[in-house]
Amino acid sequence: MTSNSILIEARGIKRHYLRGSETVKAVDGIDLEIHAAEMVSILGPSGSGKTTLIHLLSCLDSPTEGSLSINGKPVAGLKEDELTKVRRGVLGFVFQKFYLLPTLSVAENVELPLLFYRQPVRREETMAVLRQVNLEDHARFMPNQLSGGQMQRVAIARALIIKPKILIADEPTGNLDTENGIAVFDLFRALVREQGISVIVTSHNLVFGYRADRIITLADGRIVREEKGPAAA
């Protein structure tokens, strides 16, 4: 795969829904391509459609209109389990809330997706991804023994264990201070640079968002600006 390979291709996607008698146009006709080994920031104020767009791009939600393909597979009209199949092995997820299981150790949390993939657990692989996020010494820790930044790095390791082509991060710095937020974005940059993973990240914080290769700004469910970031320059 070259760096120009298109992993996600969206054409005129819309996501409208009814709230009472009002139609909410959360995403209202977006064309977008995500290429391999690029980091894309989606910025915008609250309610601009960032999260809805990222849910569409990650097959967690389906567009009401338009076409969308992930890794070359059209996903329109697929049922939930079929969308899960599309996601598996392609998409890794990081969320604002870390969603670590409190009864599992750090290593077990990282290995959780392997349970759903019916793949054997290889502790050396777990340790390798924990090393990537600088938490190899914390494998036996429980989540409540970690700081917010450490928990987010565990969540990133959990996304990486399945070797995704695209890492999707929805407001990953929302619960972090500036220092930890920058560290997370630096980690994303390293993943893009060293492993060729594409990263799509939403943020309302320009300081973080402008650390990407490409910055897309949304307002009212539409792309209002698309620019190259300083990292790509």
Binding site: L60, E80, T84, R88, L101
Partner: peptide, 16 residues
């Protein structure tokens, strides 16, 4: 609820 959603995002099928 959120955790179940994340499990599904991470690759869990309905049956899982």
């Amino acid at each position: 609820t959120g955790e179940i959603g994340v499990m599904k995002a991470l690759g869990a099928f309905r049956g899982d």
